[in-house]
Write a protein that binds this DNA or RNA. Structure first.
Lengths: 112, 112
DNA sequence: CCATCATATGTCTATATGAGTATATGTCAA
DNA sequence: TTGACATATACTCATATAGACATATGATGG
């Protein structure tokens, strides 16, 4: 699943499908990608459980399977506490960092 | 960033760091990975902006940079509406799917 | 049946990268 | 300075895979 969204084409496909289900042809057109490439990415997404499809006439209608995406969402939540804590920013100031720390950012201090 | 979390070793590193900052040696030990591998994964994570580090004595103390992780979290939110909607499950029943659909789930139907 | 449309798959190449090993860099202590 | 420790990098090999092309599969209409 994590691997499935690691590719930008697939992320674009998912973003398209998030707006509503699509056929392969519609994706091929809207994303301006060769059809075999779309099909192969859809295959990866299907194997990862990120999308489902149904056959409608000669078309294959794909749509997002929210469940798999939700797992990804849940995984990122383990870091939620970190970006809620202002400690983090504060920590930056207490320790001397040796990368791109703009030590002159004296504007935002005093979080209420 | 998406690529950074596509690897399970790196996800484990991030999960460790989510619990608190660590030195490379601590990660090497707790994850039971060879040290060069840990360093290389940390390098990828650093380049992706997922972690930061500071030098403390002979040690390098790494910690999560929540900002980058938050972006990932935000990306997954575009699918939030989908797993909130019950339409999705309903849609399964209206169309004939050709995968693992338990067609005998006749309990939830009738929302006009 | 055949022809056509829509999609999937196979094959090839180039490239990215993870694992493993050896070694370089850098820091501290004496 | 030397030596030990902590970490980073270089190098090699094997594997995974995206891209592009050709082609196979499957459904529809006559």
């Amino acid at each position: 699943m994590f691997n499935a969204v690691a590719d930008e084409c697939r992320r674009r496909i998912l973003a398209s499908l998030a707006r509503g289900e699509c056929t392969v042809g519609q994706l091929t057109e809207s994303l301006a990608l060769p059809q075999p490439q779309v099909s192969k990415h859809l295959r990866v997404l299907r194997d990862a459980g990120a999308v489902r499809c149904r056959t409608q006439g000669r078309h294959r209608v794909y749509r997002v399977d929210p469940t798999a995406l939700r797992e990804l969402h849940e995984w990122t939540r383990q870091f939620e506490a970190l970006w809620n804590e202002r400690y983090d920013r504060l920590d930056d100031l207490l320790h001397d960092e040796e990368f791109d720390v703009d030590t002159d950012s004296d504007d935002e201090k005093g979080p209420t």
